[in-house]
Design a protein around this nucleic acid. Structure first.
Lengths: 297, 297
DNA sequence: TCATAGATATAACCTGCCTTTATAACAGAT
DNA sequence: ATCTGTTATAAAGGCAGGTTATATCTATGA
């Protein structure tokens, strides 16, 4: 059954007038006239009484119209929703992000995004980096926020923030912060590092390796907040992202222990599937991420 | 927006596979492929992820599909309803008919029709003959059942039963029933006739006029049942339709007074608008009417 | 690693349907 | 009687959309 015929039927029924319908359809009257005739033939059923003032639905036409009318309003709302999606008036974004980045980077940003686009629903899930990659590839999230570098053929990456790792400590080892220390000195103190499954830990391990030191941390913790807490309570020297502890350093609650061998800076990035187009909402959020300033503790 | 595109979209989404969709649409795969592309262009929005195993709806496509799916099932049920109407599995019939014809002719027929077509709703309205004509012309009823003859350019008529008027009486005037009486004798007794607004009354008045008698009835009643009751209670001689009082005559509760001047037979007929096609259900009922036997009191 | 199967995309061609044009027929209204 | 607005009909023509042929991609299995 040709759906185009129903378009003629719909407008003709709506206006009770084939000529009016043809105007709204931007085609000529005979075209509509014939479409209706064709529909009537295919349904084997007259749908309109023809009069000299227009047309009137037959009882059968009336019945059909009830359904066709509904059908068309569904199509129309469907199209409206799609246009809303494009205009960020409707939609949802699913984000995968680690605990730390969620707290220190994403949350403040989400707050802004939400005030700009209140109709967009946002889901956040906080697994490890490999978990994020899996969720991405199985289509469960739109994009992930991870620590770079990361290599994957199927993924796009975009740096959204440059971060600098650093060593921090509490009162007990404050003296070390007076001047830069050789890495070999630093590692003689108790060390607080992230757990082995994190990308950040891989990065810092690489740094130790590059500088030919072998490290066995005294504590391996799940996120930066815990590292900071342990450092404050003088359990040792923690390796954390400096950008996220600036306030603690300024207010003298933590002290930076600078190694002579500089830790290279690295990047936080957003990543998404190459072969899958992003939704307009996700695109919008990603494009905003890079311009956004992180906040402190 | 071209509705045909949604047909391709619908089947492709349903089967997650453009090739499968093309089979169901009885067109080739590139045709469907292009239709979808066109729809995506018109909505300015990708609707499917293409994979090597088929296609998967994008989030926007998913949203659209919810609406399109609904729309299509409305169209489908609409078409189903129309087919039901044709097969007398759905529909309604609105009938205009006088009290008397309703009781003695129509009701028994409706009972049969209803057992044959239980899904058809039937509305009966019982106005006078002019009322029936008005309802017809204003589209409020599908057909009327009236006493013929009746003349109207806009109407079709079809005789469905031949009826014979007759004079009947109770015990009091029983003696008149022994042999045929001259009309002049009959009218010297109290007469019971229908009210002046009825077609039947016009007919019998015409009969009196033809036979050059002038009649002033003692009672003018609204329907045949009342005439029969009054006759039984010896109020006089009633003029009624013989077909509807056969049982009363047989059982000796009424007696026929035969006039020498025979009353011409007349017809009950069904009438409907010329320029408006009848619904299948109405057509079916009308075609059955003529074959149906009337019942007695 | 290569070949295969099954999916979609692309390009060119061409056909048939649908639109347009032009006209008739009809009903009300002026 | 004429004019206006309605639908129906017939003929002609153009283009939307279908077909054919081919490319490309990706899993899958030998």
């Amino acid at each position: 059954m040709n759906m185009e015929l129903y378009k003629s039927f719909y407008y003709t029924a709506k206006y009770g007038n084939i000529s009016k319908a043809s105007e709204h359809l931007y085609i000529t009257q005979p075209a509509v006239s014939r479409s209706i005739k064709q529909l009537e033939e295919e349904l084997k059923c007259p749908l309109f009484f023809r009069t000299s003032k227009g047309v009137i639905l037959t009882p059968e036409g009336e019945i059909l119209y009830q359904y066709v009318d509904q059908a068309f309003s569904f199509i129309t709302t469907g199209e409206k929703k799609i246009s809303d999606v494009k205009n960020l008036l409707y939609g949802e974004i699913r984000i995968g992000v680690s605990d730390t980045l969620c707290k220190h980077y994403l949350i403040p940003h989400l707050k802004l995004f939400n005030t700009l686009h209140p109709a967009i629903k946002i889901h956040v899930i906080c697994p490890t980096t490999p978990g994020i990659i899996n969720l991405l590839k199985s289509g469960k999230i739109d994009f992930g926020i991870i620590n770079l570098p990361y290599n994957d053929e199927q993924l796009n990456f975009k740096s959204i923030m440059e971060v600098q790792d650093c060593f921090v400590t509490g009162q007990k080892y404050k003296s070390l912060s007076r001047k830069a220390q050789p890495l070999s000195t630093i590692i003689q103190h108790p060390l607080l590092l992230l757990e082995k499954n994190s990308n950040s830990r891989l990065f810092i391990d690489q740094y130790f390796k590059t500088n030919s030191v072998s490290v066995i941390p005294d504590f391996e913790l799940g996120n930066i907040d815990l590292l900071v807490q342990f450092a404050k309570y003088d359990f040792g020297i923690a390796c954390v992202i400096k950008n996220f502890v600036e306030e603690e350093l300024e207010k003298g609650r933590l002290f930076e222990v600078k190694p002579i061998e500089k830790i290279p800076s690295r990047h936080i990035g957003v990543t998404w599937l190459k072969n899958v187009p992003l939704s307009p909402a996700a695109k919008e959020m990603i494009s905003n991420l890079e311009y956004f300033e992180t906040t402190e503790f």
